[in-house]
Amino acid sequence: MRKPPFVPMSPDAPAPADAPGSTLIRLILKSAPEEVRTGVQSVILQLDPVHLDPDERSTLELVLAEIVNNIAEHAYCGRPDGWIEILVRPRPEGICCRISDEGKPMPGGKPPPGLLQDLNVPVKDLPEGGFGWFLISDLAKDLTYERQKGRNTLRFRMAIGAA
């Protein structure tokens, strides 16, 4: 995958995902839907040596896809040329992830509440969107968000095994 010009995150922003101790997977992709798809799949493939069980693997893929699609759609407003950095580090306490972009900040400076949608409505009123943040907040652990120097950073952990 080609690398757009990008200054790596400064070391004054310590993250579980970039703490030393195990293999680090780092990927930079553009905010275009096809690139999001292949980028997230490539991260999952690079995690092969970690031997996640199929549920852990596909759940991580889902959470990464939801977050990165959300960045493409909302932070970059559908523009295909924004950069997104994915850092993933498998650790004993789980798969630690950090995802950064330089798009718009989250509204209100924090991630959406991720509430379950009301489905007790006539078919014509059923929601066709808004499931993404519910899935993220339900499946990701220790999720934090910060906006610093024009950069959004989300950090979270995916529990594996008994962790």
């Binding site: 596909s58 929601p127 066709e128 993404g132």
Partner: peptide, 11 residues
């Protein structure tokens, strides 16, 4: 694999 966009499309 299905994500929330895919789910929305089924709806």
């Amino acid at each position: 694999f299905i994500d929330s966009s895919g789910l929305g499309a089924v709806v």
